[in-house]
Simulated scan of single mutants.
Amino acid sequence: MNRPQKYTAFKMGWECIGHHLSGLISEILNREVKCEARQDDYDYWCAFMNDDRFTIVEIADLVEAVNGDKKMYAESIPTDSNTSRSLTMDLTRALLKKALDSDWLEELVREDALWIIGDFPEDRNIMTGPIDWIIHLVGNGMTCAECGKVENPFIKDACNAHTHGMEKYGHPDFQMVLHTNPKDISYILNTLGMRVKNGERFKPGDMVSGIFLDCDVRLDSFEECGRTVLRVIIPDGKNRFPEDPACDYPYSFQTLPLEQLEANGGTCS
Rank of each mutant, 00 (worst) to 15 (best):
P182N: 04
G205S: 03
F202W: 02
M194A: 10
D184E: 13
N181Q: 09
F202S: 09
L178Y: 05
M207I: 03
H179W: 05
P182G: 05
G199M: 02
K197F: 11
R201V: 13
R195W: 11
N198V: 01
L192W: 05
R195S: 07
D206N: 14
L189Y: 09
N181M: 06
L178G: 04
K203E: 14
M207Q: 14
N181F: 03
N190D: 10
H179N: 15
V196Q: 10
M207G: 04
M194C: 13
H179E: 08
L178H: 08
K197L: 07
M207V: 00
E200L: 14
K203P: 01
D206F: 02
T191H: 11
D184L: 07
K197N: 10
N190Y: 11
K183E: 15
S186L: 05
N190F: 12
T191Y: 02
N190K: 15
R201T: 07
H179K: 13
E200K: 03
K197C: 04
Y187M: 11
D206G: 06
I188R: 08
R195G: 10
G193D: 03
G205D: 04
K197E: 14
I185S: 06
G193H: 08
N181S: 15
V196W: 14
K197M: 09
K197T: 07
I188M: 14
M207H: 15
V196N: 14
S186K: 14
M194Q: 13
L192N: 11
L178P: 02
T191W: 07
G205W: 02
M194I: 06
T180S: 12
N181I: 01
P204T: 00
G199D: 06
K183M: 14
D206H: 12
P182C: 06
R195I: 07
D184H: 07
R201N: 08
Y187A: 12
T191P: 05
L192R: 10
M194P: 00
N190G: 11
G193P: 08
P182W: 02
L189R: 06
G199S: 02
D206R: 01
D184M: 09
K203H: 12
R201I: 00
I188H: 09
G199V: 01
K197V: 13
H179Q: 11
G193F: 09
R195H: 04
Y187H: 13
R201H: 12
N181W: 05
K197G: 03
F202H: 08
R195D: 09
M207P: 03
T180R: 09
V196K: 08
L178I: 01
G199K: 10
S186V: 04
M194F: 14
M207F: 15
S186Q: 11
P204D: 04
N181R: 12
G193Y: 02
P204H: 05
